Simulated assay, not measured.
Amino acid sequence: MDGKNITRITMIHLIGFKTHQSIQGLMFTFLILIYCVTICGNLLIITLVSYSKSLHSPMYFFLSQLSLSDILIVTDILPNTLHAVLFEEAMMSFSDCITQLYFFAMPEALQCFLLTVMAYDRYLAICKPLHYTLIMSHRVCWITVITFWTLSMLIELILAFGISKLQFCGPNIIDHFFCDFHPLIKLSCSDATNVELEGALFAAVLVFIPFTVIIVSYIYIVITIFNIPSVTGRQKVFSTCSSHLTVVSIYYGTMVCVYLVPSREELWNIKKFLSLLYTAVTPLLNPMIYSLRNKDLKKVVRKLVILVLNLQVKKQ
């Protein structure tokens, strides 16, 4: 095909969710509630970790970064999704579509790294307690996080740049509620093999390798826990990593269902709702899981509530 005769598409049409009009209002309310609660919940985690000296540890430092990435994901995805639900479709420019993909994929990549280092943190705390403070120093934590942010940005920038160089000459309709990698690649009328290979390579780096590290870390953790003689001791040690294990299960479980299960036309609407789980529901659940299952966080919340109540009493 002669490149000079190709008319590049400039607008992307997102179909969103094909829902009955009777439940559009309900779904809109549900999503906006998720958005507000997610932002408030994750901001609360970041505030608590910054405010309380008792939470100035590597685990909570990485948790605050996880909360920041959750805020980026829902802010990138949900406003446009709300528009698509309300008006049954959404239009955006091609450049905006690429930008949305980048600011979705970048914090998702960051979360894979963060969940990995959080598993390693639990491994060190449980299996190598004498070396923990030496390895997980304040300086090492900051270097690790900066490295993860930089890697995530660069990897997704390379992918976004590769997609932007493809020819898109129509159609311009994506049967999804946001600009995801595979639905966007399907619109290309040029050879996208190299970009797809890049995507597969980065998926291996960002998903398979981190997940393997997490599994290996927990194998060692489980072995160490079973070597603890008392049942109370086992339960106490396991409780320190149960929140992280729950988040990992939800996060990787939904990702596997969306990206690794073969796509079928009749199952696409189900996969769209699964996509909604890890783009909207998982960021909502993360602060709840850590808050409800973590004694340290609950203590700080109680102290903060008592402080606010005392201030209100003094004002009166």
Score class of each variant (00 low, 15 high):
111 Q>T: 07
165 K>R: 14
170 G>R: 10
207 V>W: 04
198 E>L: 14
123 Y>H: 14
105 A>F: 12
174 I>M: 15
176 H>K: 06
161 F>M: 10
136 M>H: 06
143 I>V: 15
183 P>W: 03
98 I>T: 08
107 P>E: 11
194 N>D: 02
112 C>F: 10
149 W>P: 00
128 K>S: 07
105 A>E: 13
110 L>P: 00
115 L>G: 03
146 I>F: 09
225 I>Y: 05
203 A>V: 02
179 C>W: 12
215 I>N: 01
212 T>S: 15
171 P>W: 14
164 S>I: 03
213 V>P: 04
210 P>F: 10
101 L>T: 05
206 L>S: 10
201 L>H: 04
119 A>W: 01
116 T>S: 14
130 L>T: 06
153 M>T: 08
179 C>Y: 12
221 I>Q: 01
135 I>G: 00
215 I>Y: 04
142 W>M: 11
139 R>E: 13
107 P>C: 13
153 M>R: 02
157 L>N: 05
186 K>I: 06
117 V>N: 00
106 M>H: 01
211 F>P: 01
140 V>E: 09
130 L>V: 02
191 D>K: 13
103 F>M: 13
198 E>N: 04
100 Q>H: 12
102 Y>R: 02
152 S>W: 03
220 Y>T: 05
186 K>M: 13
179 C>S: 15
167 Q>A: 15
194 N>T: 03
133 T>F: 06
172 N>I: 02
151 L>Q: 01
153 M>D: 00
188 S>F: 13
189 C>G: 11
151 L>C: 06
156 E>C: 13
128 K>M: 06
123 Y>G: 00
212 T>W: 11
131 H>E: 14
196 E>V: 01
100 Q>I: 07
144 T>M: 13
164 S>D: 10
124 L>P: 00
180 D>A: 15
118 M>L: 15
209 I>S: 05
111 Q>A: 06
196 E>H: 01
138 H>D: 08
184 L>K: 03
206 L>F: 05
152 S>K: 03
133 T>S: 10
199 G>F: 08
174 I>W: 09
187 L>G: 11
215 I>A: 09
170 G>F: 07
148 F>T: 01
145 V>H: 03
99 T>S: 13
111 Q>H: 09
184 L>W: 05
115 L>D: 03
161 F>A: 07
161 F>Y: 14
208 F>L: 11
157 L>P: 00
